[in-house]
Design a protein around this nucleic acid. Structure first.
Lengths: 257, 257
DNA sequence: TGAATTTCTCAGGAAAATCACAGGTTGTAG
DNA sequence: CTACAACCTGTGATTTTCCTGAGAAATTCA
């Protein structure tokens, strides 16, 4: 049966007190994710962020450790750096596949070495992000993989809704009051983060930490700038949904409060 | 001078306040918090304030002491100064994470060092306050962290209610009789402090100590001024909820007592 | 490769918040 | 009733925070 089986991940969702929707396994236990990267700062960063999603995390620093942990931990998804010290990423993948045939993998890869090798791999339903990534990106991709891998129960949809504003995480489509709105990649991620935490004040530091890459070293006022861009596209001439809490941060909420 | 002597002492020694919602762990035992700072004045100040919340406190003055204490004390949350004598704040964080993977951390950091060093730290749901902080700020942030981490028993919600007045700590929204009221950051903190101690006289000294930063060197009548602001916004044309006890302090209570 | 798009820095200016000061008001002790 | 202490609040200076235009740098796409 699948009471303990990690391979069946129906994408049940439940809503926590904060209004956050969490992915859960059919038996109500938390989703399990294995993180594999040789840089410890990366595994720690990812573990933190993914635990905060309510998931159960294990990490490994090399290929053999990954295979060993996978066998015992039976994760529902794997985050795998393609650049590991002991063996080639493809070799690790092969061994993982033997242990966990149906588990989706999110590859981490350097910016340049993308197209050739990865393209083929993602054909099987896997996905990848390039380093340096933003946490929102990793979390979103992972949520998508897990959601789709539990094909039996695909009730959870990928659309966030706040008031008359909608954002589709799969198609990247954004509408307000029915009108389609074009956003750039960064604008999209910022809006997604806001909409995943509606009616909640988010500080500029929080936003920077989640939406921008972990190695971003620039000015903190990019957040102000992109809020400004979003307002121009989303609140333009309408009842504003993005609000400033001076000295605290920003929040999004339905217009007709 | 703003110490009235007897009144202050009387109010300070009042035992467990009624109407205060206390955070407890699932087994009913008090929440445990570890405070790490090398300035003893700071750890003492914090320990006193946090104990007053009904929490169990331990403190450490350096990184190695912090790790040692954490292992044995198993706190539900950690307050961590990023500037420690023996090791880098990030190093301490790493070691703490290994001991206590799921424990939320509240960082204390200098005002200017925010931009560079905080990057990535709030990613896992952690939070930070800048020195000099106000005690209310630290307590509120800690309560938020503990609440969200699930260490606390009841998934207590973030809304304070006194009569027809409500204050939401997540959205920073304040309403009276359904009408939304806009408050500035300082007004918000003052009202939060009053509402967390309803029907209780709070001296100007107490208010100054909790709501303003510990290094505030200004005139004591800022409290009067901000009470005045609050009244204008909250009691405007309604049955007053904020009352003056001449020679003693202020208190808030439901209008139709 | 060149053009279009996107990301980000910088800086000026607007808006808001904080606080000191001081004169007015109210409660109360004597 | 008087005088004083405690409290209230208008005014405005100072500081903080936020917004946004302009353009440079980087990236993407044809």
């Amino acid at each position: 049966m699948f009471s303990e089986g990690p391979d069946t991940v129906a994408a049940m969702t439940t809503t926590s007190p904060q209004g956050r929707t969490e992915l859960l396994r059919p038996d109500g236990s938390p989703v399990r994710v294995l993180v594999v990267d040789d840089e410890q700062s990366i595994t720690e960063l990812l573990s933190m962020a993914l635990r905060y999603e309510g998931w159960q995390i294990r990490s490994a620093g090399d290929g053999s450790g990954a295979v060993r942990t996978a066998r015992e931990f039976r994760p529902d998804a794997v985050v795998l750096d393609m650049m590991l010290p002991d063996m080639d990423g493809l070799a690790v993948l092969g061994r993982l596949r033997r242990e966990l045939p149906d588990v989706p993998v999110l590859f981490l890869t350097a910016k340049d070495a993308v197209e050739d090798r990865i393209a083929g791999l993602t054909a099987g339903g896997d996905d990848y992000v390039t380093k340096p990534f933003s946490l929102e990106e990793v979390v979103a991709r992972l949520r998508g993989l897990i959601r789709r891998s539990g094909a039996a129960d695909r009730r959870s949809d990928s659309v966030l809704v706040v008031g008359d504003l909608t954002l589709d995480e799969d198609s990247h489509e954004v509408t307000r009051g029915g009108d389609s709105i074009h956003l750039t990649a960064t604008e999209f991620e910022l809006l997604r983060f806001l909409m995943r935490n509606p009616r909640r004040v988010l500080s500029k530091a929080q936003i920077l930490d989640r939406v921008w890459s972990y190695d971003f070293g620039g000015q903190a006022n990019v957040v102000e700038l992109y809020i400004s861009y979003l307002r121009r596209k989303i609140d333009a001439g309408r009842e504003p949904m993005i609000h400033t809490r001076r000295g605290a941060g920003y929040l999004i909420k339905p217009a007709v409060s």
